[in-house]
Amino acid sequence: MFNYKLNGNGTKVPHFYSGPLVDFFEPELEGAEWAKDVLRRFSPQSACILGVGGGYHIEALVKAGWSKPLRVFETSQALVHECAERCNYENLEIVLLDAGTTEDLFRIPKFVEMLQSLRLCLPFRRAWTHQLAFFSELFLHLTLRSEESLKVHILHEGHSLSDSQILNPERLARATIHDVDGAIEFNSTSSNLVHRCIMEMIK
């Protein structure tokens, strides 16, 4: 059951039963550090965040200078509502996932469409406490490390699988661009050149 508790600073901290979904004592600082790490490492055209928590990390990311579209996935209506109130950011879209399992998500056209144009998935793991298994699976889908999501993605791009061994779940969860080499047949010369260009970077 969701509820909110106030910490010593008077900050509202969301809880699932007795477990906090963000750092109880310093949720803003935790959010700021997470945002700092994201901005140091990534600068894609768009990103999705898994887990709303208290919305502190999303607020921190925007405050730290994120100006690209953000899509946030959450399973709890209450948390979505709270986040929407906290984060006033025009490029923010909060998606409430009410599917029973992650496999059901593949029947939602918007989800499939989103997978096809996927850029970056940013996990905020502490906020997964109330749906740990669901978010973990969803994360694999959103990083193309599940059979379903990889198939959706490469079929949409017009590529094909030349080595289905890559679909082994354990291997896929740890896969790197090296594993893609030879496992995916790219649809065009330009896609193949892009791939070869990347392979040169990791030689």
Binding site: R41, F42, S43, P44, Q45, L118, R119, L120, C121, P123, L142, T143, L144, R145, L150, H153, L172, A173, R174, A175, T176, I177, V180, S190, S191, V194, H195, C197, I198, M201, I202
Partner: peptide
């Protein structure tokens, strides 16, 4: 940016491919 993603399991497997295509 691409190198940060290349061997990071938190990144979409084909992120660098898409980033370079973009």
């Amino acid at each position: 940016e691409m190198q940060a993603h290349l061997n990071d399991p938190r990144s979409p497997l084909l992120f660098s491919h898409q980033r370079l295509t973009d």
